[in-house]
């Protein structure tokens, strides 16, 4: 085991433990904050996989955007009379058993399959090649996603303001 492996296990532990807190905590604000640690741990995993740009985008978009949006949602949809903002649960134990079996199946498949994994080479910065590929080979999808974001922005604003003319 070298340093890479230790860092991997650190980030893996951070990700899995805080994801466990996200789905088991009854307090929504606690869940949202531990989702932040999950997303940060995943970003660390991206760095270990040599995807530097994806890691930065993960931090900017997920932690800086989506998580804040979720927290706004929590704050706007609860009558804040006390600090505790709880969520109800449905059929926790049967669902835990079913998803546990599903997860064990998935892990055994992932572990048992002989993936044809090429030995990892050195990790160059992906920024230049990512930009080139995005604006040549994938330019149509890139533009369509730009349109999609615009439509989603206008749609979200118009849905959220409906009935308040």
């Amino acid at each position: 085991m070298n340093l890479y492996d230790y860092i991997f296990y650190l980030f893996a532990l951070l990700t899995v433990v805080s994801a466990l807190v996200v789905v088991t905590s009854k307090n929504i604000v606690h869940a949202a904050f531990s989702l932040m640690f999950t997303l940060f741990g995943i970003s660390g995993l991206y760095v270990l996989l040599g995807a530097d740009f994806i890691a930065v985008v993960q931090i900017i978009v997920y932690i800086g955007g989506i998580l804040i949006l979720l927290l706004f949602g929590v704050m706007l949809t609860n009558k804040i009379t006390n600090v505790e903002i709880k969520t109800g649960t449905i059929k926790t134990i049967p669902m835990a058993i079913i998803t546990g079996v599903f997860g064990a199946l998935l892990i055994s498949i992932m572990y048992g399959t002989k993936w044809s994994s090429a030995p990892p080479d050195n990790m160059p910065s992906t920024l230049q090649i990512l930009g080139n590929t995005l604006l040549t080979e994938y330019v149509l999808i890139f533009e369509l996603l730009g349109m999609l974001l615009l439509v989603a922005l206008i749609g979200a604003a118009s849905i959220a303001r409906r009935g308040r003319e």
Binding site: V16, I28, T89, G100
Partner: peptide, 29 residues
């Protein structure tokens, strides 16, 4: 394996929480 664990935790979050925002967090996972 990390991704498989996260996937099953996300499904558990989706099916067992009542609050819609908690379900959204499961989808993000």
């Amino acid at each position: 394996i990390i991704s498989a664990i996260l996937f099953s935790l996300g499904i558990y979050g989706i099916v067992s929480r009542k609050n819609a925002i908690m379900v959204l967090m499961g989808v993000e996972l």
